[in-house]
Computed example of a mutant assay.
Amino acid sequence: MPNERLRDALLRNGLALEQVAEAVGVDQKTVERWITKNRTPYPKHRHKIAAMARESETYLWPDSVAPERKAETAAAEVVQVFPHRHAVPVELWDRMIKDASETVEVLVQAALFLVERPRFIKDLSAKASAGAHVRLLFGDPEGDSVALRSAEEQLGDGTLAARIRNALASYRPLIGVDGVEMRFHDTTLYNSIFRFDDEMIVNTHVYGIQGAHAPTLHLRRLSAGDLFETYSESFESVWNLAKPATF
């Protein structure tokens, strides 16, 4: 079975087989076999290819890393654990938003706290204009999942849907901006995800507890890690189920 993940990653980054072969010091046919026959490169080659393709080793070659090493690397991907989302320092949010240049991905219900930042929308627009890919996923205010979540958090009927609509009003300037995509999801929100390039804030959700008071992880992606990639794949799954946002 071909390694479609590797093929896609190389194509997405405009990397020809001969470029990869030259960069890692192997024959072009060897690179072809890595794709068409799903052969696994040596570790030194995997490191270089993963860096070139801007993907993790565990994503490109899921079976290449021993379970023990995956567990150790996953622990190393956790930069810090916060007891509550509101305990995440303002300076950390500011730095991640400022430093992101390639990927911004947000999976939330409303996340009004983000648009309370005076420059957040302008920063997203500027980053998209500079070539970053910005993808934003909001809870569908008409969806069943939002209604259920509002009840579970004891917010009152329609409260969460109203919060989402309030937040969306702030995102209107991003409509039609090249590089910015916005969708509605109607999935169970197990975690809110905020990705800025190779860093991520994961706001876990606890039944009956509002997101601001739930535990939160600060992750930094490592090439051989599996934790960051797990949340990234979760975002992708929700994105594929979502529909274009309507304002």
Rank of each mutant, 00 (worst) to 15 (best):
V20M: 11
A23V: 03
V24I: 10
G25I: 05
V31C: 13
V31T: 01
R33E: 06
I35C: 08
K37F: 03
P41L: 08
Y42P: 15
P43F: 02
P43E: 02
K44E: 10
K44H: 12
K44L: 10
K44Q: 08
R46I: 00
H47A: 14
K48S: 02
E55C: 14
E55A: 13
S56G: 14
E57D: 06
T58G: 12
T58M: 11
L60H: 01
L60R: 02
W61F: 08
D63K: 08
S64M: 12
V65T: 12
K70C: 05
K70N: 03
A71Q: 14
A75G: 14
A76Y: 04
E77H: 12
Q80S: 07
F82T: 06
F82K: 02
F82Q: 02
P83N: 09
P83R: 07
H84N: 10
A87D: 07
P89Q: 04
L92W: 03
W93L: 05
D94K: 13
M96V: 03
I97A: 01
D99G: 09
D99T: 05
S101D: 14
E102L: 13
E105F: 09
E105M: 14
V106W: 03
V106Y: 05
L107N: 00
A111F: 00
L114D: 03
V115R: 06
R117K: 09
R117F: 01
